[in-house]
């Protein structure tokens, strides 16, 4: 599904001054699997998510990133989205004047159009929105409000998952989706993510903390440090990190 080979990438500001953040990263997430990426601050976790989704200023220097054999770096952000790449943002943006429902429907139809599919009918869209909102315990009123404006951190994250369930992407990147969530919200959000687990989907779960992985059980756990995957293992690796901290695992990797 997602194959990253020897990725090197820079983060650049508007004046083109940049810094190498990803320094030879290789990773493979097969369809049907959930992989977690953990790592200390500044390791390149968010950079990786922006690089894969095509944000301006995140520039690949060498290496490849392919989704189902297609070179992601040749596609605009909206084309990647239409191919099924979805990023749940660490800090979802506020869009005043654009109600949640309008936004999601615009996104859904734009993706369908890019893929050469018909638009979703209004009743079909409403029905689906109602079902998903119920699953995530989202109030119908909230969907009429401007996207994320005045929402709490937890509500914003819940809305990210709402969008995800509505758009049914093929490959999910969750960037610190657990931050800002209380225990109940964490469970609801995790249930939403788990509802999307399937043999055709892959997921990359970026997190600082093990607790999210109690709810979204990963098949593999990778440790990202200084722009590289320095250790990989099963779910037990996350438990070890939680217990020993990054220092122990990183020291071992360096040895």
């Amino acid at each position: 599904m997602l194959v990253l080979k020897d990725l090197v990438a820079r983060v650049e500001n508007e004046d083109g001054e940049g810094k190498e953040i990803i320094k030879g990263l290789s990773l493979e997430v097969p369809a049907g699997e959930v992989h977690a990426i953990m790592g200390p601050n500044g390791a390149g976790k968010s950079t990786l998510s922006y690089l894969l989704t095509g944000r301006d200023g995140y520039t690949p220097i060498s290496g490849t990133a392919e989704l189902n054999g297609e070179n992601l770096f040749e596609l605009d952000p909206e084309e990647r989205a239409a191919k099924g790449v979805f990023l749940s943002f660490q800090y979802p943006l506020e869009i005043p004047g654009v109600p949640v429902m309008t936004f999601v429907r615009t996104a859904m139809n734009a993706q369908r159009k890019t893929r050469g599919e018909d638009e979703i009918s209004a009743p079909e869209f409403l029905k689906k929105a109602r079902e998903v909102a119920k699953l995530l315990k989202i109030d119908a009123d909230m969907l009429k409000r401007p996207l994320n404006v005045g929402f709490s951190g937890g509500e914003k994250k819940r809305l990210e998952i709402f969008q995800m369930l509505m758009l049914e992407p093929k490959f999910l990147i969750l960037d610190e989706t657990d931050s800002g969530l209380d225990i109940d919200a964490l469970r609801i959000v995790s249930d939403g993510v788990n509802a999307l687990r399937s043999d055709e989907r892959g997921m990359l779960v970026i997190t600082h903390y093990q607790r999210l992985l109690d709810h979204i059980k990963p098949d593999r756990v990778h440790v990202l440090a200084n722009g590289r995957i320095v250790a990989s293992g099963g779910p037990e690796l996350a438990l070890r990190l939680e217990k020993e901290g990054y220092d122990g695992v990183l020291a071992e990797a360096a040895a």
């Binding site: 301006d56 909206e78 943006l93 936004f103 996104a107 734009a110 401007p146």
Partner: peptide, 20 residues
């Protein structure tokens, strides 16, 4: 970028942000 990541092409994203 947020709008484009959701699949909204750049021109439409700019129109939506003008509304916003």
């Amino acid at each position: 970028f947020y709008l484009r990541q959701r699949g909204i092409p750049e021109a439409e994203a700019k129109a939506l942000l003008t509304r916003s």
